[in-house]
Design a protein around this nucleic acid. Structure first.
Lengths: 258, 258
DNA sequence: CTCCGGCGGTGGATTAGTTGCCATGAAATG
DNA sequence: CATTTCATGGCAACTAATCCACCGCCGGAG
């Protein structure tokens, strides 16, 4: 944990204070066009002064890649505001099957499910990259909301957005085949992380087949097979931890509607 | 639509004003024990006076069983507060496959996904029983929140709850087999609507196999087959639109963990 | 009474997806 | 440099679940 006066911390604070100008994004599986605009950032509507006040109430914490931020089944209190990095929120069933609910980036908050209450985490959060988060306790949140209506609006917007994400995920999982979900995910990755190269788009993010599988609710092997098929059809090609999409329209077509 | 001074309307208003004492429930597919306590009701934390003020801002509307309250793809504004009845919120994929997100009962609100903005509905709402709802426009909501912090808390709690529901649904769909999901749903139905009869529990709610299928994200036939199997194992028996569960523990076992 | 539409129930063919296992190569670790 | 770990890939057997088609039943409406 960094002390408030450490230079690293103040730089990080700076990035949060300015986060409404940064191109923050969440990586999630959804067909909702509205989500493409990116999620609402918690402090977006606050003045600089208010932001400082909020951050002063929180505890800054560094989470290294691969480390758990919180685990399902453990008690929780309040939320974590992401200052930098990337947090993967996921759930593991007793059978061992795992589903990724979303990857959250800077400016969003994770934790919960409740904001105030002291229930149990029903999902886990792990750092997908070295991250800095600010922990806001339920008590602190309550106090802040009372004197800062814009924060309440921010929370409502954030929760609304999460609701959209999770319901969209449920829609995908409940009504689409794995192949369709995978096509959808690839398109989403193109939008979020894609680098256009001529008329192709390269996805350079280091996501393993297992990562993809967890996002679409499938097994690793099936993702491998499906990607091979797409490759055989000439729709995409893979080069060591990089996926190059050649025919976006073909992916669109097989994504099945919308 | 009933005029405010109609006796039916005032009776309905009364029921809403007292709704925190009523055993309101939502029917949803989740393994989250916290949800068993029932969802937080929107007006729960408000004084009688405040409740009246909120209802005055809304437009009361009667929706008959089977009639759509709102449809995915159409523009939306604000939310619908359920005064009585039951609203099924669901999504239909272009392929025709359908997934029920939840059944919401009196005291909860549906609509959205946003509360204020004028986006498009990303899911549909249909009356599963004759219902009375109060429409609160985004504008009205904004105004009410500003002078009624308890309403903001209510909205936050409601949204948090919906987030839990939808993420739990995604968890179920992403990590459990149809059979497990069905076992889970049956247990949930026992909790919500079940009538204990000796050491068995009867579910009398008129839910067709298709309804069940939409809730667990499966086909109607598969539900029929699965129910037949459970019946063959002596775990339950069916008598014309009534399911009697004999071995709750067996269902628990096959629901797979938690 | 008859017709009709929704619902439950079956069956068979087909496919989508799983499980388990083993091989390989690259990267990280000692 | 040697070793281990991890990501990818391939394969065979298996089963869960879907799809399509059809049938009979029942309750309601004309």
């Amino acid at each position: 944990m960094l002390s408030p006066q450490a230079s690293g911390a103040s730089r990080a604070t700076g990035s949060l204070l300015l986060s409404n100008t940064a191109p923050a994004q969440a990586l999630l599986l959804t067909e909702n066009a509205a989500l493409a605009n990116g999620p609402p950032l918690l402090l977006q509507r606050l003045s600089l002064k208010e932001r400082e006040e909020v951050l002063k109430e929180g505890q800054r914490r560094v989470v290294y890649r691969g480390k758990m931020l919180f685990s399902q089944g453990t008690p929780h209190d309040g939320i974590f505001l992401i200052e930098s990095g990337r947090i993967r929120v996921f759930y593991i069933a007793p059978s061992g099957r795992e589903i990724t609910l979303a990857y959250w980036h800077a400016g969003n908050f994770v934790g919960g499910p409740e904001l105030f209450g002291q229930g149990m985490h029903v999902w886990s959060g792990v750092a997908a990259a070295n991250s800095v988060v600010v922990h806001l306790s339920g008590k602190a949140l309550r106090g802040l909301i009372a004197r800062m209506p814009a924060l309440a609006i921010g929370l409502i917007e954030g929760l609304t957005f999460k609701g959209k994400c999770y319901s969209a995920l449920a829609q995908m999982l409940g009504t689409r085949s794995v192949t369709e979900r995978l096509a959808h995910l690839l398109l989403h990755l193109c939008d979020t992380y894609g680098v256009p190269e001529g008329d192709t788009v390269a996805i350079g993010t280091a996501l393993t087949h297992a990562d993809l599988a967890h996002m679409v609710g499938a097994t690793r092997q099936w993702v491998t097979i499906s990607l091979k098929r797409l490759q055989a059809q000439g729709i995409l090609s893979t080069e060591k931890s990089k996926i190059v999409v050649h025919q976006l329209d073909a992916l669109h077509a097989m994504r099945g509607g919308t």
